Amino acid sequence: MGRSRRRAVLQPPCRPPCPVSDTASDVPLASGPTSGTTLSGRAAAMRMRLMQAGAELLGEVGIERISTNQVASRAGVTPPVFYRHFKDKYDLLAALGSTLMEAQNDILYEWLERSAPAGFEELMGAHYQFLLSTIQATAEMPGAVWIMRALRAVPSLTAVRLASHEMVTDRICRAMGPLLPEMDPAELRLRTRIAVDAGYAAVEMALDDPSMSPESVCRALTQMWLGGLRHGV
């Protein structure tokens, strides 16, 4: 697989649309990624515009040097407009991290829903392609590698990262538990949680290190997790 270098437009996860209102009262002064506040169509578009600008700048200047003024300027708006949508640059990074992980997780959920009903061997046989698809989708998102770095490096984003990893672990264990009835549930969860963290690391490695073949990374991780699960039964 060749690495995709084209600029992609940041997209929210594929989910059913929420009802929106055009009233100004729907626009939060400083909404976080988990605020649950409904945005008007115009406000949602502006929020995504700021996130797109932030993602692009992350890839250019890095986590430490990016500023709210830079993001506002890149988006073609004034700083006060930025602060109507995000409290600070870390709030923006949290939104970018959540959007990236939700997009990645959607691919994982599709893998589970499509392959788990066919049994353990089918599920693990499709793991390689799931992981490769995740790398490909991540490569197309602006600033993805820097967003993943921020999720690890910025203390205020730890909760965002861990919450996503725990949710993914729960989802995998619910699908895999019935397929491995002989395996202790606590051991299954431990090995799955390790595999989840390794999966995110594998995606970052494949995108960050030109010497690493994405196919080789996916193949190695699939074999490692499969061996660990079989050994635990």
Rank of each mutant, 00 (worst) to 15 (best):
A139D: 13
M141K: 03
I66R: 08
L112Y: 02
A150L: 09
E56M: 11
R49L: 12
K89T: 10
A103Y: 01
K89W: 00
G36E: 07
E64H: 07
A94C: 04
F82R: 09
S133V: 01
R42I: 12
E60V: 10
Y83R: 12
G54N: 10
G97L: 04
P117T: 09
D88I: 03
E122D: 02
Y128V: 02
S115Y: 03
V71N: 09
H85L: 07
P80L: 04
L29Q: 13
S73Q: 14
W111R: 13
T134L: 06
R84S: 14
G97H: 02
E64R: 13
A150N: 11
A44S: 15
D91T: 08
S133L: 08
G97V: 04
L57G: 11
S98W: 00
G119I: 03
G59N: 04
L123R: 01
A144L: 06
V61T: 14
R42M: 07
L123D: 04
F86H: 10
A44W: 06
P142R: 04
L108A: 15
M48H: 07
Y90L: 06
A118Q: 06
R42W: 07
P142V: 04
N69T: 13
F86W: 09
Q52F: 05
I135M: 15
T78H: 08
A126F: 00
P33K: 02
L58F: 08
L29S: 13
R42Q: 11
E110P: 01
M101R: 14
M148T: 10
F82H: 10
A75W: 00
V61D: 10
E121M: 02
A94N: 06
Q136E: 15
L131Q: 15
M101W: 01
M51R: 14
G36N: 10
A144S: 15
E140A: 15
Y83C: 09
L92V: 03
V71Y: 02
L132P: 01
A30N: 05
R84N: 14
A94I: 01
W111C: 12
A95I: 01
P117L: 04
T37E: 14
E121F: 00
S31F: 01
G36R: 12
A103R: 13
L58G: 11
L100F: 06
S40Y: 03
M101A: 13
Q52S: 08
D91Y: 04
T134K: 11
R74M: 11
A116E: 02
M124E: 07
S31M: 07
L57M: 08
V71H: 04
P117Q: 06
A30G: 08
M48T: 12
L93G: 05
V61Q: 09
L96C: 09
L123W: 01
A95E: 05
T68E: 14
E122F: 01
G125F: 00
L132H: 14
M46R: 15
A126L: 02
L58D: 14
L57R: 08
A116Q: 04
G41I: 02
F86M: 09
M124Y: 00
L57S: 11
A75M: 05
R149A: 14
P117G: 06
Q129W: 03
W111S: 12
A55N: 11
R74Q: 14
G62K: 10
M101V: 10
H85F: 11
G59F: 00
N105C: 07
L92Y: 02
L92F: 01
Q70A: 15
V145H: 04
I107S: 09
T99N: 03
E64A: 15
V81W: 01
L92D: 06
V145F: 02
A137H: 07
E60Y: 02
W146Y: 08
G119Y: 00
